[in-house]
Nucleic acid binder design. Sequence first.
DNA 1: TGGGAGAAGTTAAACGTTTAGATGCGTTGA
DNA 2: TCAACGCATCTAAACGTTTAACTTCTCCCA
Lengths: 343, 343
Amino acid sequence: MAGVTIRDVAKEAGVSIATVSYVLNNSRNVSEDTRRRVLETAKRLGYRANIIARNLQASETRLFGYSWRPSPPDRFNPILDRFLQAMAEAAAFHGYHVLTFPFPTIEDELATYAEMMLTGQVDGFVLSNTNLNDQRVRCLSDNGFPFVAFGRSNADWDFPWVDVDGRTGVRMATQHLIAQGHRRIACLAWPETSLSGQYRLSGYLEAMEAANLPVDPAWIERTENIHNDAYAASWRLLNQPADRRPSAIVALTDLMALGAINAAWDAGLKPGRDLAVTGFDDAPIARFLRPPLTSLRQPIAEVGERLITILVDIVQGKPLSEPHVLLQPELVVRASSVVSYEE
Amino acid sequence: MAGVTIRDVAKEAGVSIATVSYVLNNSRNVSEDTRRRVLETAKRLGYRANIIARNLQASETRLFGYSWRPSPPDRFNPILDRFLQAMAEAAAFHGYHVLTFPFPTIEDELATYAEMMLTGQVDGFVLSNTNLNDQRVRCLSDNGFPFVAFGRSNADWDFPWVDVDGRTGVRMATQHLIAQGHRRIACLAWPETSLSGQYRLSGYLEAMEAANLPVDPAWIERTENIHNDAYAASWRLLNQPADRRPSAIVALTDLMALGAINAAWDAGLKPGRDLAVTGFDDAPIARFLRPPLTSLRQPIAEVGERLITILVDIVQGKPLSEPHVLLQPELVVRASSVVSYEE
DNA sequence: TGGGAGAAGTTAAACGTTTAGATGCGTTGA
DNA sequence: TCAACGCATCTAAACGTTTAACTTCTCCCA
């Protein structure tokens, strides 16, 4: 399809293809005269090196694979856009590209990774949404195939990762609520199977303990990241007797925070005044909700960039200066958690 | 990296590499005996054909490039997730993958496409966010390079596209409002430079005309797809004298609809009751807003799938049965546009 | 003057497939 | 008996690069 090859340039410039290659890659001394002639010819013919051929020769693809679970219609992925952009940009900077791939069903996930690894379709993977005993981590580690994860897994598995410190983040949010005078603070948490859910929850527990505030077990509601489940859980929280009813809710995602806010409205409470709520992710929509949602902003662009930098180092066999990166989220305070809030 | 090649299998099975290839690709008659031996050997050695080598031979990449403009922090892309998933899935079905790539700045956009085309990094492109005089369409058409667009462009340019019928969609939304008894209906539109903005706006105008309703020019507010701009525009609409103040607003996106809703609240109006609002996109969040937002749902999965199907046909030189596909959005009615709405 | 060094360029192998064409062999029918 | 054919398999070229190894030439110094 492309048409003009290195052979054409060589013939036209009256040199061997090796010389053309040397000129174009600056990989060997070539006389100024020849160099100019080759460059001129290449430009005139509109020559561009064929990537596949180069890849075959170098036996690499300069491609990184990335896959993620699709969101159901009632859920959204607040970071996907910026995350992909950040990765793609960082990859391009190093001469790589990001290949997105799906897996038909969740059972095929591992097989899909294995297939792409074995056929040499990519040089490495970026994993996200890792969890405990993540099979992808195990499989890729076993095969010595390059990868890096957004998120941690088993503590005794040694692999490179970048993560956002959800524990510190949620602790900050909880401390913020405590500083606002709240004493009975509930948490909309995730099922115990979720590792990052555990990290985030522990941040809440730490803050409560550090402030010597008792935690009523009923204040910890575990649901999936689903609005309606969070709504129902919040409803239960708000229906407790007055002396045990929380005045603030720390939600582990913005979507769950929205469930809490909506439950408050429906309970005749004014969120932000009668019930403080905080979220996680700082989705673009958070600032436009009513009330605007206090949330923890993840440094997604940096996560993406760090992931790619690490992966490039791995692929190129460089030693990793920092195989584990824990980035801090930023607490963005808005009216959902502060009574007298001025935009 | 991969290790085991077709040569290893051939040696181990005691046949030539050609025979192995024939067996694996079913491309020529091979005796049942040899076939079994080769298959068994390949399986035992864990052989997987190297994709790059195959691609070089076939001089194709089996990759489709897709790029999109990143959303600024105060905006979100409600369809990206499902769109990418749909494309990736359809592509995988045909043996292709989706390569995402960024461009440093908007000035580099065209150059980036050209570079990827000329170096043979992809077999084709999916464009989105096309507009009038879209340089990408022109450039790729001129070069005869395979591509398909999500969205139309100049009417006299002949190229394959899939689009969602925004005109009919917005007409449906407007008719819905008219059916609810509204007479003074405003439209939060886009700048005139936006092609799909024009389509959508014309749907509004058509519905108004068909119902013999006059359109006050002041009812058409043009802003970018930005919450705060839409908010300000709505504020202007609501501050008109009572006999000219609209009782309903058709917004061209959910984000703009949210701006209208927030403006209504701040104006002391109850959206859904005092001001009907409709959006576009049916973002996952739409159903959880207060009030839940009436919106137009784009058949994104089908768009992605149709795009890929067309692109595969182009790349493989098959005739296109349907080079132009206009899909219908679905009006999802919720409380933001209906006074007595039961969830 | 002979030889070594270095510059400039060429040749050819390699990367791992696919596939057109050649080869060899057994079968069949005239 | 032999040509014709078909089947199974192999050989080798091709895809478009990169690069190790080799050749040639010039220059310089002992």
